[in-house]
Design a protein around this nucleic acid. Structure first.
Lengths: 157, 157
DNA sequence: CTTAATCCTACTTAACCGATAGGATAAAGG
DNA sequence: CCTTTATCCTATCGGTTAAGTAGGATTAAG
């Protein structure tokens, strides 16, 4: 095991769970890989999974699936066979954080009834427009979205 | 089972997980209970778990543990025995969302290295100050915090 | 002393995250 | 053509969590 996964921690009596709310390793690794690609692809052209996994200390097999997702999502492309590897399709400055997060992490909203892309009707709320929690979560979502839209991969390079 | 928990859903090829990032039922129920208390405690004085669970359609036993947490955190108090129940200690307008969230949901930051209350050094990042992801997450945290600090239970009533 | 409420500890179940395993496919180069 | 080396794909495992459940201990009113 390369990385110790510490989902919970106890401080005094209260148990903190970093598990939820927190960024998944999938997203973290994906961002690392994208950053690595943006840094190295110009020199050598193609970058292999093995290189990234080694340099960034990421489980190789896990990284495989992540890069595959990113490929399917249209961020990068791959060349198979000997001497193959991955390369970014877009410029780093054109890869928005919001898009990466949606692919790797999922919905940005904290409630389905507040999600732009994956909206789902609230089960136990008769009227969304008069729901205080709904309003609050809309506000949080909009602020987070704004930040993720204004940042690109270039900011991490 | 009172509430159907649908953690995952497939849309086309992509699997969406509402599980992470999303607000837990614990927090949702806790907020509902607090709102219920704020609405009803003036009339009858004490409000029992059973009443809240019934009206808000929440699993009674689960609600018990949530209210216990809220009591230990100092939001409300209880009177045991016949005719007993819960009552808010503070005014609804004095109960900040940020405090409720910290108790029920945990850290607000998306990374331990960005958490104000539960900071933990980043494992795979040599220098936090030069880390782009760190900066991004600080920005998200600050915006979310700002919103949660500016809202109170009164906004949900 | 019965009733009715909170308090407390432990357990169950389904799901997911992170990681692994094993092979299928594809391309380069001798 | 065949070996090597890379991505692609499916399936599974172990550990952990959220959500809910069970059963009783404690406390207080009437």
């Amino acid at each position: 095991m390369i990385n110790n996964f510490k989902p919970t921690k106890s401080i005094g009596l209260t148990k903190i769970n970093y598990f939820r709310i927190m960024l998944s390793k999938k997203t973290k690794y994906g961002l690392k890989a994208l950053t690595y690609l943006a840094r190295h692809q110009n020199d050598e052209g193609l970058v292999s999974i093995g290189d990234i996994a080694k340099c960034e200390k990421i489980s190789r097999k896990f990284l495989e699936s992540i890069l595959l997702s990113l490929k399917k999502a249209g961020f990068l492309n791959a060349k198979k066979g000997k001497g193959g590897g991955y390369y970014l399709i877009k410029e780093a400055s054109e890869i928005k954080m919001v898009d990466v997060f949606r692919v790797l992490e999922g919905p940005i909203a904290m409630l389905p009834c507040v999600s732009l892309n994956y909206y789902e009707e609230c089960q136990d709320c008769p009227d969304e427009k008069s729901c205080g929690l709904h309003k609050l979560m809309i506000e949080v979502r909009d602020n987070t979205l704004k930040i993720f839209r204004n940042h690109t991969l270039q900011d991490l390079v």
